[in-house]
Design a protein around this nucleic acid. Sequence first.
DNA 1: GTACAAATGTTAGAAATTGTTCGTTTAGTC
DNA 2: GACTAAACGAACAATTTCTAACATTTGTAC
Lengths: 256, 256
Amino acid sequence: MRKLPSAARLARIRERFASEAGVSVADLAREFGVSEMTIRRDLSQLEGQSHIHRTHGGAVLTGRMLLEFDYRDRREANRDAKQAIAREARKLVKPGQRLILDNGTTTLELACLLRDGENLTVITPSLAVASELLDAPGVEVILLGGVIRRGSPDLTGPVTEHCLELFSADITFQGTDGIGLDGKLYNADLRLARVEKHMRRIAKRAVVLADHTKIGRTALACSGKLSDIDTLITDRAASAEALRRLSKLGVRTVTV
Amino acid sequence: MRKLPSAARLARIRERFASEAGVSVADLAREFGVSEMTIRRDLSQLEGQSHIHRTHGGAVLTGRMLLEFDYRDRREANRDAKQAIAREARKLVKPGQRLILDNGTTTLELACLLRDGENLTVITPSLAVASELLDAPGVEVILLGGVIRRGSPDLTGPVTEHCLELFSADITFQGTDGIGLDGKLYNADLRLARVEKHMRRIAKRAVVLADHTKIGRTALACSGKLSDIDTLITDRAASAEALRRLSKLGVRTVTV
DNA sequence: GTACAAATGTTAGAAATTGTTCGTTTAGTC
DNA sequence: GACTAAACGAACAATTTCTAACATTTGTAC
């Protein structure tokens, strides 16, 4: 086979995707008579413009699956603890309640457990939570409006706060990026911190879900004090010393 | 069988579920020419994305996956015409504009074409549109709040209407379920019809995207009159007779 | 031809995927 | 409940693929 100019090769690779969902580096290299390295470079370039995603061994079309609000990577971190915390939180939910589920991977785990809920209403700014509960028969999902933060599938900003004003709820389940030993709740994003404050205002009861890595950490924005919340659920790996200090601040703490 | 990159194998396993409700590890291993252990790992991964549920010897489908397939089918229907219409609509968009993109598969195709937009703001009640534009660098996505309709990934209801009040826009791009020859726009869902009316009120210009199958059809709810909109974009397959009648009603009609 | 830039090839070490083995769990049967 | 065969998961080994750096070739303008 005669070698083609690079642009033509790129175009032909693109055409491949019209008929096949995935291509392999080795095949393309053989087919075009170039080295695998060149194909890899081509695919990297295409990944920027086209709807393909590079993988080990080749590339696949993306956008074929809807609602891929991609939390997968972060979701793996410390997942066992998060699931245990979510199971504990699930016990607080009774049929017929109106819940608020904040952004975050731990609340997402809780969302999974609510799929079999009865007559629940879930209000959330998280696209991942919404997508998880989309087809749950006993759950009505109300998504708050707002600006989508780049790189994170959730909603924040004035619109979100404005939407929240329209509701009231029985319980708000929130994550956090850090709980200082001074009893303050921290969040890495200022806008999220504001939204969380609003949530607590309209809910009868506030529950914070935080694995032990969050305890003793601080972050940019303070979203409130521990005394603003009713229950903190964390995991056993949290240091006893830290837990003692927190419970002195008056918050009911559950460890799982 | 030629080996595909691992992600392609995952995609094909997923596709299996479109036709069959369950799969077996042994079958898949034989079919793809890999070890059973690899298939188990694949299935675990898919389960983590909550598309399926693992069982002994294989895996079965969950509800969420069904929804995704259903939407995909609708998207495929008449796709060429929809893409051509979307390309025509794309030409109306200038850098810096604020757009409203309604629900629907045709507007979703338009969203794909807006990924390279410059300094655009897209306001939408459609989770699919939001998901498509999530990572587009030149596009800010504002998702409207609202209740998620079961079986369709989009938002409607009073909250959605309330959110719309907060904005104004340059152009609203809408789909429709039917355009009667009496010059009325129809929609199969009453709540969606109301939302569409609101959209037109806050946008300077209203553009309706409808492939020829929509022309001459009616549906449950009337969302307005053709005279409320500025431009109708449809495809050549629309009957000349019908187009003549519509243009008499005063709407600028573009056929592609 | 020379010079320069762009594209491609090569290599080696790092990373990811896959295969294999083996002890444990599960589902079904008696 | 006990037994059995199939299926499972963890750990390790083998294989494949990736990235990055540098070397080489190709293309183009002077």
